Simulated scan of single mutants.
Amino acid sequence: MKLAVLLCALVLLSACRSSVQSDEYQNMTPNIDVYDFFDGQVNAWGIVQNRSGELVQRFKVRIDGSVNDVGELVLDEAFTYGYGDGVKQRVWTIKNGNNGFTGNAPDIATTAVGTLYGNALRWQYEMDLPVDDTTYRVVFDDWMWAFDKCTLMNRSYIKKFGLVMAEVTIFMQNTEVSKGCTGALHP
């Protein structure tokens, strides 16, 4: 009986932690330059899977990024869905601070906090997520990795009570010819 309780406790504890460890990426390159990558047009495409691994959304995002007069990065995201439904537009305002980034958007419940780790960026925030007729307060734990100066991959863990309830996988490519991103794939 004690062994069964111990095994259940270990399973629950391991489910509370994502497998991503920041120190693994600190010395990896290329480093992410958030302002440079998102300044201009970025095309993204991705999927959302529930905790059973089933596809619940497939989407594309056009991100128009610019730096405003006070040095904030503004990301105007327009979503289209091939499967499922969700938010149609989100506008982030991101500030570069001493220890990373902070960001806000109208449909995000808390200020997002971003920390750079070499070629990785961890972006965390809470959101009131509508599902059917109910809204749930969830925690987003996003990890972005730079492939090169034109391509990022994002893996988001959507958590409730510390448990991963869904996962989002997104690929992003900057399409600005002036940055040498002419070979970018288009969603």
Results as ranks from 00 to 15, higher is better:
87 V>T: 11
118 G>W: 06
102 T>G: 00
97 G>W: 08
121 L>D: 07
113 V>G: 02
122 R>V: 10
109 A>G: 01
87 V>E: 10
104 N>P: 14
112 A>D: 01
124 Q>Y: 09
110 T>M: 06
102 T>F: 08
98 N>M: 06
105 A>R: 14
89 Q>R: 11
108 I>V: 12
95 K>P: 06
79 F>W: 13
117 Y>A: 02
107 D>M: 11
84 G>R: 05
122 R>G: 05
120 A>P: 08
78 A>K: 15
119 N>R: 15
79 F>E: 01
79 F>G: 03
103 G>D: 03
85 D>C: 04
79 F>D: 02
119 N>P: 06
120 A>W: 15
113 V>Q: 05
117 Y>H: 13
127 M>R: 09
112 A>L: 05
119 N>S: 08
99 N>R: 07
114 G>P: 05
116 L>K: 07
96 N>K: 11
108 I>S: 02
126 E>N: 15
98 N>C: 14
99 N>I: 11
108 I>P: 10
125 Y>H: 05
117 Y>C: 00
80 T>Y: 07
112 A>H: 07
118 G>C: 09
107 D>E: 11
108 I>M: 14
110 T>E: 15
78 A>R: 13
76 D>M: 05
127 M>S: 05
127 M>K: 14
103 G>I: 14
106 P>H: 04
103 G>R: 12
123 W>M: 01
82 G>S: 12
100 G>D: 01
115 T>G: 09
95 K>E: 02
120 A>I: 07
94 I>M: 11
108 I>T: 03
123 W>N: 02
101 F>H: 14
114 G>D: 00
111 T>I: 14
85 D>N: 15
111 T>Q: 13
